[in-house]
């Protein structure tokens, strides 16, 4: 959950004014990587015909292992296991595991985003555009341009809190320069000595009444998680 779970992490630190865009993005990535975590939450997709809600439980360990299980909604029973190479999906009706090497989307949030894409500098070129103020917070405005076609968005503008490196807003652009989506962090909570974005809203800028809201009910960081959780056997269970 690049935008939902991970990038929205806050680590108190002293601001270094001379940081480059790469340094800031690296800081965002570092701050959003934990030894492990377990979270429960829900995704509310709003479209022309009302809202569709799916609740989930997510686990992650290190940078490359994550597992999401949907526990309600149309995706109930569906599990997504992501490794550094592949994305595995288990559909409950089929008792079958499918491997995907590309993305599949749930509303405005792609599975890759939900399961953590934390090597931003590998996939994007960065540029510091300046500093602004959002809701009284001083933020860095950073432009990300995709180096590869494998990422979901060609261009992004990140608004990173200059004190805690929480991403407060993201603007997503198409290759033609059209603004397609906006993500806003609506709630940040302190968990232990870290700050986590626990509520965010992604709005589709091309369609009316179309948004995806992500809410975390609970999150535990740096807890012991068995490696077996991140296996095909657990996915099939």
């Amino acid at each position: 959950m690049k935008k939902i779970l991970f990038i929205l992490l806050f680590i108190p630190c002293t601001l270094i004014f001379s940081q480059s865009a790469d340094d800031i993005v690296r800081k965002v990535d570092e701050n959003s990587t934990y030894k492990s975590y377990r979270a429960e939450g829900k995704v509310v997709v709003e479209g022309s015909y009302g809202k569709r809600t799916s609740e989930f439980i997510a686990y992650a360990k290190g940078v490359d292992n994550s597992l999401i299980e949907f526990i309600s909604g149309e995706e109930e029973g569906q599990k997504i296991f992501k490794t550094s190479d592949d994305l595995y999906i288990k559909y409950p009706y089929a008792e079958d595991i499918q491997r995907l090497s590309r993305k599949k989307t749930l509303g405005a949030v792609s599975y890759d985003e939900m399961s953590g894409e934390r090597d931003t500098l590998k996939n994007y070129k960065t540029k510091l555009l300046g500093r602004e103020t959002i809701d009284g917070r001083d933020v860095y405005k950073i432009e990300l341009i995709a180096k590869t076609s494998k990422v979901a968005h060609y261009k992004q503008e990140l608004f990173v809190d200059s004190e805690n490196f929480v991403v407060l807003k993201v603007l997503y652009y198409s290759k033609s320069g059209k603004l397609t989506k906006e993500m806003v962090t609506k709630e940040v909570k302190k968990i232990g000595d870290k700050f986590i974005g626990t509520r965010s809203l992604i709005t589709d800028k091309l369609k009316a009444n179309n948004s995806t809201e992500s809410i975390l009910f609970s999150i535990e960081l740096d807890i012991p998680l068995d490696d077996k959780i991140f296996s095909l056997d657990e996915l099939a269970w």
């Binding site: 995907l100 590309r102 993305k103 599949k104 989307t105 405005a108 076609s149 979901a152 060609y154 198409s174 290759k175 033609s176 397609t180 589709d204 091309l206």
Partner: peptide
């Protein structure tokens, strides 16, 4: 099998 991610969330 190949999945093309088109712009504007189309695939």
């Amino acid at each position: 099998f190949y999945l093309f991610n088109l712009e504007e969330d189309r695939s």
